[in-house]
C-alpha cells in the first residue's frame, strides 16, 4: 500500500473518531448548547462544497489551457468533483437549515452565506443540465468546462455585492462575538479533525470515481480494439 492509499483509507478511522469527538469530547457551546455540535458537520461540509467547486473550476481551466492534451482525465475528474460537490452542497444546505431553525428560529432567511451557497447550487444544477443536454456530443467536455469557468468568475462579484446588500447573521469567523461563544481549544481541535476527515472523504470518493472512470475508458478501448 502506498502512502496515498494509507492516507485516503485513514478516513475509515478518522470519521468515527470525529463523530466521537464531536459528541463526547467537545464541550457544548455556551448559549447554543448541545445543538452547536452540528457545527462539526456543517462547517466541514460547507468547506468541502467550496473545495470541490474550486477543484472543479481549476481542473476546467487546466483542461481548457491544455491544448495538446498532455494530461489525461482532467474533464472527467472535474465533472466527478462537481458531482461530489453537489451532494455535499445539498447536505450543507440541509444541516445549515436545521441549525438555523434551532438558533435563529427560521429555516431560511437569505443570509449572505445562504445566498452564496444557493448560487453555488444553481451553478451546479445549470452545469449538470448543460452536461445532460450535451450527452453524446464530442465537445461536451470543452463546452462544459467553459461554462463552469464563466459561472465561476461571476462568484467574486457576488462576494463583492452580497455583503453590501445584506447584513450577516452568520457567525463571523466561526462563532461571532456578540453571541459570546468562542471556540476553546477542544472545540477547535474537534473542528479541525472534522474538516480533515471530511476533506479525506472527498478525496477518497474522488479517487474512487477516477479509478472507475479509468476502468470505463479501458473497457471502451478494449471493445474498440475488437
Amino acid at each position: 500500500m502506498s502512502i496515498k492509499t494509507i492516507a485516503l483509507k485513514s478516513v475509515y478511522i478518522l470519521m468515527p473518531a470525529t463523530i466521537l469527538l464531536a459528541f463526547l469530547w467537545a464541550p457544548p457551546a455556551a448559549i447554543l448548547g448541545d445543538s452547536s455540535r452540528i457545527m462539526y458537520f456543517h462547517v466541514p461540509l460547507a468547506w468541502v462544497s467550496i473545495l470541490a467547486f474550486i477543484v472543479s473550476g481549476i481542473l476546467s481551466v487546466a483542461y481548457l489551457a491544455d491544448k495538446k492534451g498532455r494530461f489525461h482525465g482532467l474533464v472527467e475528474t472535474s465533472y466527478n468533483s462537481a458531482v461530489i460537490g453537489f451532494v455535499f452542497t445539498i447536505l450543507t444546505v440541509i444541516t445549515g437549515s436545521i441549525w438555523a431553525k434551532i438558533s435563529w428560529g427560521v429555516f431560511w432567511n437569505w443570509d449572505p452565506r445562504e445566498t452564496s451557497i444557493v448560487i453555488v447550487l444553481i451553478i451546479y444544477i445549470a452545469y449538470f443540465s448543460l452536461q445532460g443536454a450535451l450527452a453524446g456530443n464530442e465537445n461536451r467536455g470543452r463546452i462544459g468546462s467553459s461554462y463552469l469557468v464563466i459561472a465561476m468568475i461571476t462568484l467574486p462579484f457576488f462576494a463583492f455585492l452580497v455583503p453590501r446588500i445584506y447584513p450577516s447573521l452568520h457567525p463571523d469567523p466561526i462563532i461571532n462575538k456578540d453571541r459570546t461563544v468562542h471556540l476553546d481549544a477542544a472545540m477547535l481541535t474537534t473542528l479541525l479533525v472534522a474538516i480533515l476527515s471530511f476533506s479525506l472523504l472527498y478525496a477518497y470518493i474522488l479517487f474512487l470515481m477516477k479509478r472507475i472512470t479509468t476502468l470505463k475508458k479501458r473497457i471502451g478501448d478494449y471493445h474498440a480494439a475488437d
Binding site: 470519521m15 468515527p16 463523530i19 459528541f23 457544548p28 448548547g33
Partner: peptide
C-alpha cells in the same frame, strides 16, 4: 443550559444514529 440526564440520552441517541449512518 443545564445538561440533565434526559438531554444526554438524546445526545447519545443522535450520536448512535450518526454513527450508524457513517
Amino acid at each position: 443550559e443545564t445538561p440533565t440526564a434526559d438531554s444526554s440520552v438524546v445526545l447519545y441517541r443522535v450520536m448512535g444514529v450518526v454513527l450508524i449512518v457513517w
